[in-house]
Structure formats: structure tokens, C-alpha cells
């Protein structure tokens, strides 16, 4: 009997939870704030779905109820992607080591 493709996706999902578990425990506590902002940014990969929805309209009517929700979702996710990555970048640039020559 053939395996339902859902099961494969479920496997990816469960294995990713385990990867997430081990990877996140190894994150140093001083970087927990950047961790939150970067997870914010990457979870906005949901923009993929928004783009599909936005492009679903046909040539005569770009806008229908479904695609409008898609376009709105694109903007929301884009705020997160740009905002999330840039603010993470800004924070990480501030983490500096002690200057050895000072001692």
C-alpha cells in the first residue's frame, strides 16, 4: 500500500521539532533576544503562501477577495522579514568582545 504524502510531511515536521530542540538549547542565553527576532523573521516565510494567494487572480481581475487577502498578507510578512532580519543584524553588530589591548 502506498504511503500518504501527509506522513512524509509529518515526518519532516517531527524531525524538525527535534532539530529545533537541540539547536535552540545550544543558543547562548545572552542571545535570546536576537533569537526571538530572527525566529520572527524566518517564520514569515509564510509569505510563500501569501504570494501564491496574491497571484491567483487572472489577468482581467488582479484583485478578488482571495487575492486581496494574499496581498495584505504579503505586506504583513514583508514587514516582519525586513524588520526581523534588520533588527537582528543591528543587535548582533553590538555584541563585542573585550578589547585585549586595553588590559
Amino acid at each position: 500500500m502506498e504511503i500518504d504524502p501527509f506522513i512524509f510531511r509529518l515526518s519532516i515536521f517531527i524531525l524538525s521539532i527535534f532539530i529545533g530542540y537541540y539547536v535552540v538549547w545550544s543558543v547562548t542565553p545572552s542571545l535570546h533576544t536576537p533569537l526571538m527576532s530572527v525566529t520572527n523573521a524566518i517564520s514569515s516565510v509564510i509569505i510563500v503562501g501569501a504570494i501564491i494567494a496574491g497571484l491567483a487572480g487572472n489577468d482581467e481581475s488582479v484583485f478578488n477577495t482571495s487575492s486581496i487577502f494574499g496581498f495584505l498578507a504579503i505586506s504583513l510578512a514583508a514587514i516582519n522579514i525586513f524588520g526581523g532580519f534588520l533588527v537582528t543584524q543591528r543587535m548582533l553588530a553590538m555584541y563585542k568582545k573585550k578589547k585585549r589591548d586595553k588590559k
Partner: peptide, 8 residues
């Protein structure tokens, strides 16, 4: 999306 969702 599935991988990211699980990670986050």
C-alpha cells in the same frame, strides 16, 4: 514552512 514552523 513546515521546517521553519517546527523550529520556531
Amino acid at each position: 514552512l513546515i521546517i521553519t514552523g517546527a523550529l520556531v
